[in-house]
């Protein structure tokens, strides 16, 4: 009894809490869009939300009406119905038509995000190496060539310039991960043994966002959205979007310092991870 009352109270208080927190910076909807193609993604999202909301309301309304209208009444026998071909055709064809419409309607957005990849020569290319439970990032350094002494390597911290195309070359060392940059509407699954590539262009710097939000500690978030193991929740980081000049300064400084730091060993496996993964056999008699 006590437990039921507690649950009921929670049931009442939870929505109150939700309503009270409506004023948070990004609301309870999608976070602020700061990518060039984010508007297209949001449009698709909102369109689908409208369709599913209407469907939800209509089906729930019909359900509630049916519950009330056909509830138990003394002396009235239940009517047995063995299906309706007409209804089944309708509720098969209508969703099929909606899905077909969505499939064609989103092709432009799909092409923009997944097919119209910008030219590397006019972009910042960053290598992203996922492992349980870290995002590793590597930059080409000021020499513009990867796998040299001046390559800055960072862990869980991604730095990119604003208003410039950024191409991420993404691989996984171990299991399936998914790189998610919510404010950029960027999400890319990372499959072991595959070379993934994706791009985005940010339209607002971290400093601008902090100023607008009045929050000096605000950072754009990096997350993993594929359950990748027991510490999956720790696989998050920060995305710093810098003005072009700041980014250039940062990259130059990091390139100079790179030689002083040990290169994280994970980068030894970068080439191997992009091809066929070989599982190292355990030695004989191992207790596995």
């Amino acid at each position: 009894m006590h437990c039921t009352i507690t649950k009921m109270l929670l049931g009442v208080l939870a929505p109150v809490f939700l309503l009270a927190t409506e004023g948070r910076a990004d609301g309870w909807g999608l976070p602020e869009n700061i990518s060039t193609f984010g508007g297209e993604i949001d449009h698709q999202f909102n369109l689908i939300l409208v369709i599913t909301t209407i469907t939800f309301i209509v089906t729930m309304t019909v359900l509630v009406i049916a519950l009330i209208r056909f509830r138990h009444k003394e002396g009235k026998k239940a009517q047995h119905v063995h299906g309706s071909h007409k209804l089944e055709i309708i509720w098969t064809l209508v969703p099929a038509a909606i899905l077909l419409f969505l499939a064609f309607y989103q092709t432009k957005t799909w092409a923009l995000v997944k097919m119209d990849t910008p030219d590397k020569s006019d972009s910042v290319v960053i290598q992203v190496f996922a492992k349980q439970f870290e995002w590793n990032f590597r930059y080409a350094g000021t020499d513009g060539i990867f796998d040299t002494e001046d390559d800055p390597c960072t862990i869980k911290e991604l730095y990119v310039p604003v208003n410039k195309n950024v191409i991420l070359e993404i691989r996984s060392l171990d299991v399936i991960h998914s790189l998610f940059l919510p404010h950029l509407r960027f999400k890319q699954d990372v499959i072991p043994g595959m070379r993934m590539s994706a791009w985005f262009q940010a339209t607002k710097t971290t400093l601008q966002a902090r100023s607008e939000r009045g929050d000096e500690k605000f950072n754009y978030e990096i997350a993993c959205t594929e359950l990748c193991g027991i510490e999956h929740h720790t696989m998050k980081g920060t995305l710093s979007i810098l003005a072009q000049g700041e980014f250039d300064t940062w990259l130059a400084k990091q390139s100079v310092e790179a030689a002083q730091f040990s290169r994280p060993e994970i980068w030894d496996d970068w080439e191997r991870a992009g091809g066929e993964l070989e599982i190292e056999p355990l030695e004989e008699h191992a207790d596995h």
């Binding site: 009921m8 049931g11 929505p15 609301g27 309870w28």
Partner: peptide, 24 residues
Amino acid sequence: TQFFNRALIVFLSVALSATFTLTG
């Protein structure tokens, strides 16, 4: 955006109410 935020809040409110109230 405001409209969708509010719509989402209402949906979450109903869902949470139902979950907390109906679960044993």
